[in-house]
């Protein structure tokens, strides 16, 4: 029993003498969090399908540092994203901008959804009407075969 106590005391002493990384060191600063939030919205312009926050290329490390610096200067995230698009080209943007020709990338699926919705709505309305009026699906009149 005294041996266990001695061991515990030694461990406590060691923990006091060699403390682990302090909480402020471990925790990312708020600025870093905001920087990574923005970097997650952007893509590495040199890679294929790698987000800026996850890219380990030196080019991306420098870009993240630039985001951090711009945040420290008080720039808004929207401004930074627009700045990156202007400076490094549209390939850094994860989604096509909602302007000019690029808006077609948004418009085409929207038109498809609306078109399908209208089609489905019309079909449903016709089916409901037919059910209400007791009309079975339209079949051209035909003569019954001779008995």
């Amino acid at each position: 029993m005294p041996r266990i106590r001695l061991c515990l005391a030694a461990v406590l002493l060691l923990a006091m003498v060699f403390p682990g990384p302090s909480a402020p060191v471990l925790a990312q600063t708020e600025l870093d969090d905001r920087m990574y939030d923005i970097a997650r919205e952007l893509w590495c312009p040199l890679c294929s399908g790698v987000r800026l926050d996850a890219c380990e290329l030196q080019a991306c490390v420098q870009m993240r540092a630039e985001i951090r610096q711009l945040l420290a200067e008080g720039r808004e995230p929207e401004w930074i994203v627009a700045y990156f698009e202007e400076e490094y080209g549209p390939q850094v943007h994860g989604q096509p901008p909602l302007r000019g020709f690029h808006s077609l990338a948004w418009l085409v699926p929207a038109v498809a959804v609306v078109g399908l919705g209208i089609g489905a709505g019309l079909r449903t309305r016709r089916a409901v009407r037919q059910r209400r009026s007791g009309v079975v699906p339209r079949i051209r009149s035909q003569s019954l075969p001779e008995a």
Binding site: F101, V108, V111, A112, G115, L116, G119, L122, R123, R126
Partner: peptide
């Protein structure tokens, strides 16, 4: 009418896809 709508919708989609 519904067939006509489908044809128009598909045509619009094809035109937009061709533009893209």
């Amino acid at each position: 009418r519904s067939l006509l709508l489908v044809v128009v919708a598909i045509s619009v989609m094809l035109v937009l896809l061709a533009l893209l």
